[in-house]
């Protein structure tokens, strides 16, 4: 299977994350990911997009971009935001902010679990500032080898 790119842009609003979650679930299932892994991929997509909408968008209209790359062995998702409207903290990906989120996260926290979930469930998780002043989050999921049995 040749590598294929799918590009989407959705408004920066929670409402539009759900159809993308459904799409990525169907795509992962079609690629042969096991049921549990499909649920992981959908959860990571939900968390990453939610962060982009809530922390990386100045308003609904700016939107977030997704680039989904698939081949026979991997599903890669890149979520790109353009940064919040807050001039002092346009890019929410600062070393200090990430450290603060990680340090403060606890089972009784109401917020701040999204990055932890993405890091825990994706085979690769990378975050970096982009040229638009926002954040790129890239997650990669590898297909199990054909002889690997789902437990």
């Amino acid at each position: 299977m040749a590598k294929t790119d799918i590009q989407l842009k959705i408004p920066s609003a929670d409402f539009y994350i759900e159809p993308v979650r459904a799409f990525i679930g169907n795509l992962a299932q079609s690629l042969g990911f096991p049921r549990k892994r499909v649920a992981d991929i959908q959860l990571v997509l939900d968390e990453v997009c939610s962060n982009a909408v809530h922390h990386g968008s100045a308003n609904d209209a700016v939107g977030i971009k997704l680039r989904i790359a698939v081949d026979a062995h991997t599903l890669e998702i890149l979520v790109r935001d353009t940064g919040s409207g807050n001039a002092r903290q346009k890019n929410w990906l600062t070393r200090e902010r990430l450290l603060e989120i990680e340090t403060n996260r606890s089972p009784s926290s109401e917020r701040g679990h999204g990055i932890f979930i993405a890091k825990s469930l994706a085979d690769t998780h990378e975050m970096q500032p982009n040229e638009a002043g926002g954040t790129d989050v890239r997650v990669v999921f590898h297909l199990l080898k054909p002889n690997t049995v789902e437990v």
Partner: peptide, 17 residues
């Protein structure tokens, strides 16, 4: 429910507290 994200879990935790 077949899917829950951290925002929903956080809401449940917050109200329980």
């Amino acid at each position: 429910v077949s899917h829950i994200n951290s925002t929903a879990v956080g809401a449940l935790v917050g109200v329980a507290k």
